[in-house]
Amino acid sequence: MPYLTLRDGAELFYKDWGNPDGAIVTFSHGWPLSSDNWESQMMYLGDHGYRVIAHDRRGHGRSSQTWNGNNMDNFVDDLEELFAHLKVKDAVMVGHSHGGGEVTRYLGKHGTGRFKKAVLIGAVPPLMLKTDINTKGTEKSVFDSFREAIMKDRAQFFLDVPSGPFFGFNRPGAQKSEGQIRNWWRQGMNTSCKSAYDSIKDFSETDFTEDLKKIDIPVLVLHGDDDQVVPIEASGLKSAELLPQGKLKIYKGGSHAIHNINVDEVNKDLLDFIKS
């Protein structure tokens, strides 16, 4: 399995699939998951001739479980090292949830030189936390309850999240998938407890407003209007307005995990946007 040794000695696991000579699409996963969460999209685009690259964020999946450095600026510096190693250029960058924040901060900090387009799916920007200015955000007490649940019984918490709000399986008439729940739990439990804990502050309190304003390439924003984890009013709608070349598509009734639930539609939207 391919690993890149980073500047501090940590090892970053990555997948490099598809056509080695094809146009590149990169994927950044959500919390507390891994590159495995992108399998449907990577298989689909790989079959359409693209080179698809995804990593396990440090502390997640098969990457090193570092004690320190579980923060957005460090995460995107890891990405820049990976992209330089793999000679990524003229690519499309895709991110979900926390990974959408990673995409946004990467482009804001390292620029758009390697990328021609980006896609944010159920992404956390511009800011999840409720403040005096960000009145539609989520109360800090909610994120405090996440931290408390991790310390009390992480294994149960990581069953409760996918069984309910993440996939929308708590909605009346939802087609519940035990496989999706177990796969989420597997990925979550492979993430270090320390990184999972630290990342709650990272995805909830990082303000991406200025990063969004800097992004000078087309960005497609895909968001479900029934996203119970990252409500669209505080995220997708605002991001589309702040992006200089933002385009928003709302998935009616869509959950936080539209790329896992509305697979065919998301895959088609990605392909159409990449080819346009």
Rank of each mutant, 00 (worst) to 15 (best):
M1V: 12
G9P: 04
A10M: 01
D16Q: 10
G22N: 01
V25S: 11
S28W: 05
H29L: 08
H29K: 11
G30H: 08
P32F: 06
E39W: 15
E39Y: 14
M43I: 11
V52H: 00
I53K: 01
S63Q: 03
S64D: 06
Q65I: 10
W67Q: 15
N68Y: 14
M72T: 07
F75N: 15
L79E: 06
E80A: 07
A84M: 12
H85F: 11
H85M: 12
D90R: 07
V92S: 07
V94A: 00
R105A: 04
L107I: 05
G113N: 01
K117M: 07
I121M: 00
A123Q: 10
N134I: 09
K140N: 06
K140M: 08
S141I: 15
S145C: 13
F146M: 09
E148I: 04
L159E: 07
G173W: 00
W185Q: 06
Q187N: 12
K194E: 15
F203W: 13
E205P: 01
T206P: 02
T206I: 12
D226L: 03
D227W: 03
V229K: 02
V230K: 11
S235G: 01
G236Y: 12
K238I: 02
E241S: 10
G246R: 07
K247N: 09
L248A: 15
Y251N: 02
K252G: 13
K252M: 08
I258P: 07
I258E: 12
N260C: 13
E265S: 01
N267R: 14
D269F: 01
F273A: 02
K275D: 13
S276W: 05
S276F: 10
